[in-house]
């Protein structure tokens, strides 16, 4: 099967359709336990984000590496880092940040429907952009439709990520290949073709 490499820019209709480059949205990025492919995906999205909003990184084990963020194209001078006591605390801090209009990335494996709803409301209220990193399987008992999109990210060979769209309002579940551009000249992360459609 031969697929033409159709490259979308960061502000293509698809991206806007998923709300990945728009304020006021929360996105849930899942990954297998131990994988940080979802964090790489969040960085690729955040560096395309317009505006100068600071980016808050919250987790209970704070080992995000600022030079690594710089290597991936996200300026660490824009970033603030917070160490939370546990997942609930992380979510609370992310909610405060989103309500104030900051961009936020929180690592929280446990997410209740109520917490997801609160985050979505805070982001809409304060025009913040939130990325929730979870080590969770593709389907759980407490899946919420409050986040704008839900993805399962796995690493792919080369500078690519395999992103499975699990849920997005008004879109079909599908699998995408994202190419991460480490160069500042090509700061836009491009969506490479739909490899396989599922569902």
């Amino acid at each position: 099967m031969n697929i033409l490499p159709e490259i979308f820019s960061a502000d293509s209709p698809q991206m806007a359709g998923f709300g990945l480059n728009q304020p006021g949205m929360v996105h849930e990025l899942r990954a297998a336990p131990g994988s940080i492919a979802n964090a790489a995906f969040a960085v690729a999205m955040l560096k395309n984000l317009a505006g100068t909003a600071p980016v808050l990184w919250v987790s209970s084990n704070a080992d995000w590496y600022p030079p690594g963020l710089a290597w991936s194209g996200l300026d660490p001078a824009r970033c603030l880092f917070a160490q939370a006591r546990d997942d609930t605390h992380s979510l609370g801090l992310l909610e405060q940040a989103l309500r104030g209009g900051l961009a936020g990335v929180a690592q929280a494996d446990a997410l209740s429907r109520l917490a997801a709803r609160r985050l979505a409301f805070a982001a809409r209220h304060g025009a913040g952009v939130g990325f929730l990193l979870r080590a969770a399987p593709r389907r759980t008992a407490l899946d919420s439709t409050a986040p704008r999109t839900r993805w399962f990210i796995t690493p792919a060979p080369g500078a690519r990520l395999r992103a499975e769209l699990l849920y997005a309002k008004g879109a079909q579940p599908a699998t995408f290949m994202f190419e991460m551009e480490p160069d500042d000249d090509h700061a836009a992360a491009s969506v490479i073709p739909v490899v396989a459609r599922a569902g």
Binding site: G51, T52, A53, P54, L56, P66, P76, C79, L80, F81, A82, Q83, A84, L93, Q96, A97, R99, G100, G101, L102, G126
Partner: peptide, 23 residues
């Protein structure tokens, strides 16, 4: 211009000293 001081101040006072930093 958008002012992000209020949420940063709020987080600064919610978090224990030393758990909120800039790199």
């Amino acid at each position: 211009a958008p002012d992000y001081q209020a949420p940063v101040n709020l987080l600064l006072n919610r978090l224990a000293p030393g758990t909120f930093w800039r790199a």
